[in-house]
Simulated scan of single mutants.
Amino acid sequence: MDLKYPDGAKQFADEVRAFVRAELPATIKEKVIRHAKVSPDEQRLWQRKLCDRGWACPGWPRQFGGPGFDAMQRHVFDNVMSEEGAPPALPFGESMIAPVLFHVGSEEQKAEILPRIRTLEYWFCQGFSEPGSGSDLASLKTRAVLDGDEWVINGQKTWTSFAHFANMMFCLVRTDPAAKLQEGISMLVFPMSLPGITVRPIISIDGGHSVNEVFFDNVRAPAKSLIGEANKGWTYAKLLLGHERTSIARIGQSKRELALLKTLAADQGVGGTSLLDQAGFRARVAAVEIELLSLEITALRTISAGGAPGVEANLLKIKGSEIQQTLTELLIDAAGPYALPYDPLRGLGDNGLGSNMEPIGPDEAAALTPNYLTTRVVTIYGGSNEIQRNIIAKSLGL
């Protein structure tokens, strides 16, 4: 089955593709394709180009500075950007806290924060998970007490992605310890430069640094940092997490990885026969391609329904993350022994500096093992897939 866009959407896809090919620096595209890290300066450079074109924050309505894409345009835009190797948008500001501000933010917060998210002047991180409060987020213990016109925050967050780059955080804190778990939580937004905030790196299994521990020691944030109403943070978090789980599906990225898999498998083989000509491997590739096509159709049905994503977001998160993991496994199988030498520095994009060995095998092979390792987490973050299945079952009355 060939999923084709309607004529108008196809023309828009061609327009987006032409823009990316003309404006995206080759060095940045190469990093994305090779699973290397894009620097904050490179991310901001690409964001400026999107702003100049009027395509920054593609999910935003025009009234807040977005392009006002309809559901099909947004899907096409995201797919083409991923297929062409553009850096993925940072979700924490653009796709997570922004929709919450649209609904419950004060006019002052919207005027101050939204334009700066659009330009990446504000680089957000997400203060949700804590030691012992990951998928069971409602058990969080970080406290915030209102003292005059300031919130005094004490506690710890963990697995905080890109906190070492971020200058802003949206954070869930417990403001009524006597209330039921979900009813005593509030959401705050504040600068990472406030005194009393300490960021400590966590080096992950791929050898990279993308997540952190964050400590709050009598941090004083202005009272206006509160988003919406006090003790309603859990309600806002559910809206926010719906957008996060939809974005974790990463359909465009998986389509790009599938194309890479086919290219790599066509070049590898035994006895003059490529992997793609071997029935067993070809069947595995076909199976994941069918699943990806089914996922895209489901995503199109979800976004065409409009409104905030519901339990469909949980389904997309489950299947999208599983497909991402399957693709990393198939890529390693396709590279064979060339994927075995594990050089995390080279895999992270600095071309093996510090290594005394010349790289062997295809250029793509160096980053496959680090990418495989770091992709293990996609079935955990955003709420583990086990929790997602529980939510779906509950929605069905099971």
Rank of each mutant, 00 (worst) to 15 (best):
E322S: 07
Y342A: 02
L226N: 01
L90R: 07
C51G: 05
V38H: 05
V152C: 07
W234F: 15
L239V: 13
M96N: 04
E257A: 07
V199M: 07
A334K: 03
A18D: 10
F128Y: 14
E108I: 06
I227N: 03
I248F: 13
F77M: 04
L90Y: 07
A36V: 06
V270Y: 09
S82Q: 11
E322W: 01
W46I: 02
R116G: 05
E121T: 09
I323S: 01
S39L: 11
V378P: 00
E312A: 12
Y372H: 08
F128I: 13
K255P: 00
K4A: 12
C51S: 08
Y338V: 08
R220W: 01
I360P: 01
P177F: 14
D14F: 07
N351G: 11
E244F: 09
I332F: 11
I303K: 12
P344Q: 07
K31A: 01
H164A: 13
P99H: 11
L140K: 00
G155A: 15
I297F: 10
M187S: 05
T369Y: 06
E150R: 10
A308T: 11
R143P: 03
I113C: 04
I251Y: 01
M357C: 13
A313Q: 00
E257V: 08
M187D: 13
N371P: 01
Q325G: 07
E257F: 12
I297C: 08
G93M: 12
F128L: 14
R53L: 13
M72Y: 10
W234V: 03
Q63R: 10
E23P: 01
L239M: 13
P131L: 02
N385V: 14
S210T: 12
L396A: 06
G252N: 02
K232D: 14
G271E: 08
E183Y: 07
T198P: 05
A98R: 05
T119Y: 15
L50Y: 04
A249K: 00
N371R: 13
L172H: 02
Q109D: 11
A299Q: 13
H243C: 02
W159H: 03
D147H: 06
E42L: 07
G59E: 02
D78M: 12
L264D: 09
S161H: 04
L140H: 00
E312V: 02
L172D: 06
W234D: 09
F170R: 00
K4T: 10
V288R: 01
T375L: 00
M192Y: 03
E107G: 06
A71Q: 08
G320S: 03
Q268K: 11
V199I: 12
S193E: 09
A339N: 04
